[in-house]
């Protein structure tokens, strides 16, 4: 079942085209979008969340996102942005997490919050949180709406080991519940930890390579300006039982 489909999507910032005719299909599972800085990864996610103007067509759960009301779109697509501090809107973590639910009038899936945020943080001011805590709160505040599609923009940014572990648990939880999870990053090591089903490599706004995760080679990564899977990465992943 195709949950997200992009058909010839173009995005311009002024005269400059950032995405150039992107076409892709996503099904339930974990999908990684890799690319060097400025390749268009974030813009691609923002287009799916309709946070930038685009030409072409994006279909989510069988509906064109152009025709959807914002609230209906947010019930389908959960977009988690890179820098958590840029998006805080409330005075406490509890209010921050409740904000989306209050707007969408949904009960929410508090399992997601349990996976990401500890109870003792709930009465804290989001701006006083550490980078890792803030990132997790920010993600929980969106994904609590239990959307079928999760867009995770650089989900490992700011995170220490326990933070990374909580994101991995979250992704596994999402996968087990049939979510379509699309994550962007520029490090293949973190991508490997997610055990993705497929990958897309973006380079200068176009898809330079895509396919099954297992078929991704170091040559392809190097050509796209991404650090290849070296021996260190391989040894760490192997010790965790992750097949590269």
């Amino acid at each position: 079942m195709i949950t997200v489909e992009l058909i010839n999507v173009w995005v311009y910032y002024g005269d400059k085209s950032v995405l150039k005719g992107i076409s892709a299909k996503f099904t339930p599972g974990v999908h990684v979008i890799l690319g060097r800085n400025g390749a268009g990864k974030t813009t691609l996610l923002r287009a799916i969340a309709r946070l930038v103007e685009f030409r072409g067509e994006i279909i989510v759960m069988g509906k064109s996102i152009k025709g959807l009301k914002r609230r209906d779109l947010v019930k389908l697509v959960g977009y988690c942005w890179q820098n958590p501090y840029y998006g805080f809107i409330e005075a406490t973590v509890r209010d921050e997490i409740r904000a989306t639910l209050d707007t969408l009038r949904l009960p929410g899936n508090w399992e997601v919050v349990k996976l990401l945020v500890s109870e003792e943080l709930m009465e804290r001011d989001p701006f006083t949180l550490s980078g890792g805590e803030a990132k997790r709160v920010s993600m929980a505040s969106i994904l609590i709406a239990d959307q079928p599609i999760w867009l995770l923009d650089d989900p490992f940014m700011f995170l220490d080991k326990s933070g990374v572990d909580s994101i991995l648990r979250l992704v596994e939880y999402g996968r087990s519940r049939g979510k379509t999870i699309i994550a962007t990053m520029h490090e293949v090591f973190y991508a490997s930890l997610l055990k993705p089903d497929t990958y897309i490599i973006l380079d200068q706004g176009v898809i330079s390579s895509s396919g099954e995760w297992q078929s991704l080679s170091d040559d392809v990564l190097e050509k796209a300006g991404i650090l290849p899977r070296g021996e260190i990465c391989a040894s760490i992943c192997t010790s965790r039982g992750i097949r590269l």
């Binding site: 946070l51 779109l73 947010v74 977009y79 820098n83 840029y86 809107i89 707007t103 969408l104």
Partner: peptide, 12 residues
């Protein structure tokens, strides 16, 4: 950035 954050929560 905050407008994007609000939109991601369904607030226009």
């Amino acid at each position: 950035s905050l407008i994007d954050s609000l939109r991601s929560r369904g607030i226009e």
